[in-house]
């Protein structure tokens, strides 16, 4: 028992929770834009995977993590563009398209890994390391828990604030939310529904891609097949749990980060718990939390419905 107590009270657990929550949060943030504009993007997982792959590729080829970020974002946005074209311009089934993109991303990344790298394995690459935040990094407990993270954590926090402001406090955000509630009414007001939905979808791709980039360059420093591990789908649940709010997505994602961090800690502790079962914990937690929250959620009215003008 005391072991368990040690785990729960250790500052490094919370540091890990933040780190593990980050990819999920970024993907959920992107999905929030898409869904607020009325688009369900089930292809989140595929976008994360492409982002992670691009990040490793860019970082490996140039030796610079920043180039990795650029390539990762580019690939994820490309996937988003396919989803955008099919669901916005052609009015195709959004969910089916997302599923196809997930399968395609799995295939393409696995294919390219074997085509590009000798031996069919991605190499270790340069990533982003953590740094001490000035002044507060050595504060007791919170220093380790919060202020010894990589740059991504602070980037994500800024992104969350900007997203909240843009979506909830500006005319642009109001119009985008309008597109998710009633695209026909918006169109009849002269609002360019297609353009706004495209913007939302590309933002979604970039955010999900960034999540993948961080997964690769902030955590594992390499790429492996299917490494997104269902985080894209957890992010779909986080969006619902956070009630389509960019700010509420932070605690919601942190919850899953904490569960995963806890599972990993227990797994590497002396506690006699089968490690595999601990690894199933985040997925069990997703279903449970989702089940508790969903009854009270109120999705955008036009979510997932295709809208093509005659």
């Amino acid at each position: 028992m005391s072991d368990l107590f040690d785990i729960v009270t250790s500052a490094t657990l919370y540091a890990a929770a933040i780190r593990l929550a980050l990819p999920i949060f970024l993907a959920a943030l992107g999905e929030t834009f898409a869904e607020r504009a009325g688009l369900v993007n089930v292809g989140l997982e595929g976008m994360m995977l492409m982002g992670a792959f691009g990040a490793v590729l860019g970082s490996d080829v140039t030796g610079s993590a920043l180039a990795g970020v650029a390539i990762g974002l580019l690939l994820a946005v490309l996937v988003a563009a396919v989803q955008g074209f099919v669901s916005i311009n052609l009015g195709g089934d959004q969910i089916v398209c997302g599923i196809a993109l997930n399968i395609g991303a799995l295939g393409i990344t696995a294919f390219l890994v074997r085509a590009i790298w000798e031996g069919g394995n991605a190499p270790q690459v340069a990533g982003f390391s953590a740094f001490d935040f000035p002044l507060v990094a050595n504060a007791p407990f919170v220093g380790v828990a919060v202020f010894q993270q990589g740059i991504f954590v602070y980037v994500a926090l800024v992104l969350a604030l900007i997203s909240w402001w843009a979506l909830m406090k500006t005319g642009w955000g109001l119009r985008m939310r309008g597109c998710g509630e009633d695209p026909l009414a918006c169109e009849s007001l002269g609002i360019p529904v297609k353009r706004l939905r495209w913007q939302a979808m590309l933002i979604c791709g970039a955010c999900a891609g960034l999540g993948g980039v961080f997964l690769a360059l902030g955590q594992l420093l390499t790429f492996s097949d299917g490494m997104s591990g269902g985080r894209g789908f957890i992010a779909l649940a986080v969006v619902i749990i956070a009630r389509w709010s960019p700010m509420l997505a932070i605690p919601s994602a942190l919850l899953f980060g904490a569960v995963e961090a806890f599972a990993l800690r227990v797994q590497s502790s002396d506690l006699d718990v089968p490690p595999e079962l601990m690894l199933a914990l985040p997925y069990v937690a997703t279903i449970i939390v989702y089940a508790i929250v969903v009854g009270r959620s109120n999705p955008p009215a036009a979510l997932g419905r295709s809208y093509v003008r005659q």
Binding site: T170, G178, E181, L184, A301
Partner: peptide, 20 residues
């Protein structure tokens, strides 16, 4: 064709009145 989930003022704003 007004957006049910938004307020009267927000619907006016969607039509281009005010800066949002």
């Amino acid at each position: 064709l007004v957006v049910g989930a938004l307020t009267v003022a927000e619907n006016f704003s969607l039509g281009g009145l005010g800066d949002g």
